[in-house]
Design a protein around this nucleic acid. Structure first.
Length: 292
DNA sequence: CAGCAGGTGCAAG
DNA sequence: CTTGCACCTGCT
């Protein structure tokens, strides 16, 4: 990807980048720790840093950062090396997808931390996005490290596995984790003990990573696909939540199709770009209420 | 007030 | 291997 980049007083500004829309990126269901500001920008924490992202005209302004962090963290985090034009071009041949891609044209799939995403998507099971965000923020405020203040708000890192594994069931439930609390403590124990090394999974095949992930209680087919897609670079993963199920049935299949069939259909139709297709379809379906 | 949304685990077919 | 139900909380 080619884009022009400049740095000035704690900001990095990118000009001439295509396919980058903060609203699409932060509201397509892949992340929970970014919040919109009054000016339409988004502030969040990743890899121990607070960042604000704003689109002004055709420029993307990254505030509270510098060129070093930008190159070391944010280029990879925002998947800036990937040319989405190539992906869109290929996927546009599939019926209906062209409309979904136009609708969410600025989506990028973030490369997030494996541990944070594992817990985030265990938390997502049978839960709403506002509640997931609330729970993850409570966990971070109470058990993460204080990072600093930005725009009048304090920010905390996501707590490590060797912190969460020492919490009681009640302490995790108090963060509104509900019946998922036991899954979260179990995952923290498994990860901090080294019994399973999730940071190794990005080197496995999608199929093997999926099997390994499902060894965690609270991680089924959908959650494992989300973890692989959003933190392990497995762009052929195809997570099917209720919105994707609805939109797939609405456009391509018939009602009450089993998840297994939809999964096979998606993998077959969208191939190595199934994860990107899933993101465009999810955002399209959810924002427009398709199939509901 | 009851009804509903939302993935996974677990038991039973 | 597939199906049906319980899990828990906030919102309508």
């Amino acid at each position: 990807m080619r884009y022009d980049i400049t740095e000035e007083n704690n900001q990095v500004i990118i000009k001439n980048i295509r396919d980058f829309e903060p609203k699409h990126i932060f509201e397509c269901g892949q992340c929970f720790r970014w919040d919109s500001e009054e000016d339409g920008s988004y502030t969040g924490v990743a890899y121990g840093k607070i960042l604000n992202v704003k689109k002004e005209g055709e420029d993307i302004i990254f505030s509270n950062t510098n060129l070093k962090d930008f190159n070391e963290i944010w280029v990879n985090y925002f998947d800036l090396e990937t040319d989405y034009g190539v992906i869109k071009n290929e996927l546009s041949d599939v019926p209906i997808l062209k409309e979904a891609i136009n609708f969410g044209h600025g989506i990028r799939i973030l490369n997030q931390d494996e541990w944070e995403i594992l817990i985030s998507f265990i938390m997502s099971a049978r839960n709403s996005i506002p509640m997931i965000k609330k729970s993850l923020n409570m966990l971070s405020e109470r058990y993460g490290e204080y990072i600093g203040e930005y725009n009048g708000r304090k920010y905390y890192s996501f707590p490590e596995a060797n912190v969460l594994d020492k919490l009681s069931l009640e302490e995790v439930q108090d963060c509104k984790a509900s019946f998922r609390a036991k899954y979260i403590i179990s995952a923290a124990t498994i990860v901090s003990s080294g019994e399973i090394d999730i940071y190794r999974f990005k080197n496995l095949s999608t199929e093997d990573a999926r099997k390994e992930l499902m060894r965690f209680t609270g991680v089924g087919p959908k959650v494992s696909d989300c973890i692989m897609l959003f933190s392990m670079g497995k762009h052929d993963a195809f997570p099917i939540d209720v919105w994707v199920k609805r939109v797939m049935e609405y456009f391509y299949l018939k009602k009450d199709t089993s998840l297994k069939i939809i999964q096979e259909y998606g993998q077959d139709k969208f191939g190595r770009y199934a994860g990107y297709a899933q993101q465009y379809l999810f955002y399209y379906a959810r924002e427009l209420g398709i199939g509901k």
